[in-house]
Protein backbone atom coordinates (compact mmCIF):
# COMPACT_ATOMS: atom_id res chain seq x y z
CA UNK A 1 0.00 0.00 0.00
CA UNK A 2 0.93 3.65 -0.56
CA UNK A 3 3.52 2.88 -3.19
CA UNK A 4 3.04 4.43 -6.55
CA UNK A 5 2.33 2.06 -9.39
CA UNK A 6 3.10 3.14 -12.95
CA UNK A 7 1.88 1.91 -16.30
CA UNK A 8 5.41 0.66 -17.03
CA UNK A 9 5.27 -1.59 -13.94
CA UNK A 10 2.51 -3.83 -15.22
CA UNK A 11 2.01 -6.40 -17.97
CA UNK A 12 -0.85 -8.53 -19.25
CA UNK A 13 -1.41 -11.65 -17.19
CA UNK A 14 0.39 -10.40 -14.09
CA UNK A 15 -1.19 -11.09 -10.72
CA UNK A 16 -2.43 -8.34 -8.44
CA UNK A 17 -0.91 -8.84 -4.95
CA UNK A 18 -3.43 -10.90 -2.92
CA UNK A 19 -4.93 -9.48 0.25
CA UNK A 20 -6.37 -11.65 3.02
CA UNK A 21 -9.39 -10.55 5.04
CA UNK A 22 -10.66 -12.17 8.23
CA UNK A 23 -14.32 -11.18 8.58
CA UNK A 24 -15.87 -11.67 12.01
CA UNK A 25 -19.41 -11.21 13.36
CA UNK A 26 -18.08 -8.04 15.02
CA UNK A 27 -16.99 -6.70 11.65
CA UNK A 28 -20.47 -7.38 10.24
CA UNK A 29 -22.00 -5.34 13.06
CA UNK A 30 -19.49 -2.52 12.47
CA UNK A 31 -20.24 -2.64 8.75
CA UNK A 32 -24.00 -2.61 9.39
CA UNK A 33 -23.55 0.54 11.48
CA UNK A 34 -21.16 2.28 9.08
CA UNK A 35 -23.15 1.46 5.95
CA UNK A 36 -26.67 1.74 7.38
CA UNK A 37 -27.53 -1.75 6.09
CA UNK A 38 -29.37 -3.30 9.04
CA UNK A 39 -30.85 -6.30 7.24
CA UNK A 40 -30.98 -8.99 9.95
CA UNK A 41 -29.45 -11.80 7.85
CA UNK A 42 -26.08 -10.18 8.65
CA UNK A 43 -26.29 -10.40 12.46
CA UNK A 44 -29.35 -12.41 13.58
CA UNK A 45 -28.72 -16.16 13.27
CA UNK A 46 -32.35 -17.22 13.71
CA UNK A 47 -33.55 -14.67 11.19
CA UNK A 48 -30.91 -15.81 8.69
CA UNK A 49 -31.87 -19.47 9.09
CA UNK A 50 -35.58 -18.68 8.72
CA UNK A 51 -34.65 -17.07 5.39
CA UNK A 52 -33.17 -20.32 4.15
CA UNK A 53 -29.56 -19.26 4.71
CA UNK A 54 -26.85 -21.44 6.33
CA UNK A 55 -26.32 -18.78 9.00
CA UNK A 56 -25.29 -15.13 9.26
CA UNK A 57 -23.70 -14.12 5.96
CA UNK A 58 -21.39 -11.30 4.93
CA UNK A 59 -22.92 -8.24 3.34
CA UNK A 60 -22.29 -8.43 -0.38
CA UNK A 61 -21.19 -4.81 -0.24
CA UNK A 62 -18.55 -5.68 2.36
CA UNK A 63 -17.09 -8.20 -0.09
CA UNK A 64 -17.27 -5.45 -2.68
CA UNK A 65 -15.23 -3.27 -0.31
CA UNK A 66 -12.59 -6.02 0.03
CA UNK A 67 -12.24 -6.16 -3.75
CA UNK A 68 -12.02 -2.37 -3.93
CA UNK A 69 -9.19 -2.49 -1.37
CA UNK A 70 -7.38 -5.11 -3.45
CA UNK A 71 -7.27 -2.53 -6.23
CA UNK A 72 -6.60 0.65 -4.23
CA UNK A 73 -3.77 -1.01 -2.25
CA UNK A 74 -2.21 -2.09 -5.52
CA UNK A 75 -2.59 1.07 -7.64
CA UNK A 76 -1.55 3.47 -4.85
CA UNK A 77 -2.55 7.13 -4.52
CA UNK A 78 -1.79 8.07 -8.15
CA UNK A 79 -3.83 5.33 -9.80
CA UNK A 80 -7.52 5.70 -10.61
CA UNK A 81 -10.25 3.13 -10.26
CA UNK A 82 -12.84 3.92 -12.93
CA UNK A 83 -15.02 0.81 -12.99
CA UNK A 84 -15.69 -1.93 -10.46
CA UNK A 85 -18.07 -4.78 -11.12
CA UNK A 86 -18.86 -7.57 -8.66
CA UNK A 87 -21.23 -10.53 -8.70
CA UNK A 88 -21.98 -12.52 -5.56
CA UNK A 89 -21.94 -16.19 -6.51
CA UNK A 90 -21.65 -17.82 -3.13
CA UNK A 91 -22.23 -16.91 0.47
CA UNK A 92 -19.42 -16.06 2.85
CA UNK A 93 -19.72 -16.65 6.56
CA UNK A 94 -17.95 -14.78 9.36
CA UNK A 95 -15.00 -16.71 10.80
CA UNK A 96 -13.95 -17.95 7.37
CA UNK A 97 -11.00 -16.04 5.87
CA UNK A 98 -11.28 -14.80 2.29
CA UNK A 99 -8.58 -13.86 -0.19
CA UNK A 100 -9.05 -11.02 -2.67
CA UNK A 101 -7.17 -11.79 -5.87
CA UNK A 102 -6.87 -10.54 -9.41
CA UNK A 103 -5.05 -10.52 -12.71
CA UNK A 104 -4.32 -7.94 -15.37
CA UNK A 105 -6.38 -8.93 -18.41
CA UNK A 106 -5.75 -6.26 -20.96
CA UNK A 107 -3.82 -3.02 -21.36
CA UNK A 108 -5.32 -0.79 -24.01
CA UNK A 109 -3.46 1.70 -26.17
CA UNK A 110 -4.96 4.67 -24.30
CA UNK A 111 -3.59 3.36 -20.99
CA UNK A 112 -6.74 1.88 -19.43
CA UNK A 113 -6.20 -1.46 -17.78
CA UNK A 114 -8.84 -4.18 -17.43
CA UNK A 115 -8.53 -6.64 -14.58
CA UNK A 116 -10.29 -9.76 -13.50
CA UNK A 117 -10.89 -9.87 -9.73
CA UNK A 118 -12.38 -12.37 -7.32
CA UNK A 119 -12.75 -13.47 -3.71
CA UNK A 120 -11.65 -16.97 -2.91
CA UNK A 121 -11.88 -19.17 0.18
CA UNK A 122 -9.04 -21.38 1.37
CA UNK A 123 -10.52 -24.35 -0.55
CA UNK A 124 -10.39 -22.33 -3.77
CA UNK A 125 -14.16 -21.67 -4.05
CA UNK A 126 -14.75 -18.30 -5.71
CA UNK A 127 -17.66 -16.69 -3.88
CA UNK A 128 -17.47 -13.32 -5.64
CA UNK A 129 -16.25 -12.59 -9.13
CA UNK A 130 -15.82 -9.34 -10.94
CA UNK A 131 -13.96 -7.00 -13.21
CA UNK A 132 -12.31 -3.65 -12.79
CA UNK A 133 -10.93 -0.92 -14.99
CA UNK A 134 -8.08 1.24 -13.70
CA UNK A 135 -5.77 3.85 -15.11
CA UNK A 136 -2.19 4.53 -14.07
CA UNK A 137 0.23 7.39 -14.58
CA UNK A 138 3.19 6.91 -16.90
CA UNK A 139 6.80 7.39 -15.77
CA UNK A 140 7.47 9.44 -18.89
Amino acid sequence: MNQNLFLEDISTGMAIPTIKKDPTTQQLVKYAGASGDFYQIHYDMEYAKNNGLPGIILHGALKNAFLAQLLTDWIGPLGKLTKLEVQYRGMDLPGVPVYAKGNVNEISANGTISCEIWLEKEDGEKTTVGKAVISLPSKN
Binding site: G52, G60, L81, K83, L84, V86
Partner: peptide, 26 residues
Amino acid sequence: NTNPLPENIKSPYSAVVDGGSVWEYF
Protein backbone atom coordinates in the same frame (compact mmCIF):
# COMPACT_ATOMS: atom_id res chain seq x y z
CA ASN B 1 -28.91 7.58 1.61
CA THR B 2 -31.31 7.57 -1.31
CA ASN B 3 -35.00 8.31 -1.27
CA PRO B 4 -37.06 5.16 -1.75
CA LEU B 5 -38.69 4.35 -5.06
CA PRO B 6 -42.49 4.63 -5.01
CA GLU B 7 -44.45 2.06 -2.97
CA ASN B 8 -45.60 -0.13 -5.86
CA ILE B 9 -42.00 -1.11 -6.63
CA LYS B 10 -41.96 -4.17 -4.46
CA SER B 11 -41.32 -7.81 -5.14
CA PRO B 12 -44.10 -10.21 -4.11
CA TYR B 13 -41.33 -12.24 -2.40
CA SER B 14 -40.37 -11.37 1.15
CA ALA B 15 -36.66 -12.23 1.23
CA VAL B 16 -33.83 -10.53 -0.60
CA VAL B 17 -30.12 -11.05 -1.19
CA ASP B 18 -27.69 -8.73 -2.93
CA GLY B 19 -26.70 -10.05 -6.36
CA GLY B 20 -23.96 -7.58 -7.15
CA SER B 21 -22.98 -4.05 -8.12
CA VAL B 22 -21.43 -2.27 -11.06
CA TRP B 23 -19.72 0.99 -10.12
CA GLU B 24 -18.48 3.68 -12.44
CA TYR B 25 -16.31 6.39 -10.94
CA PHE B 26 -15.81 9.81 -12.49
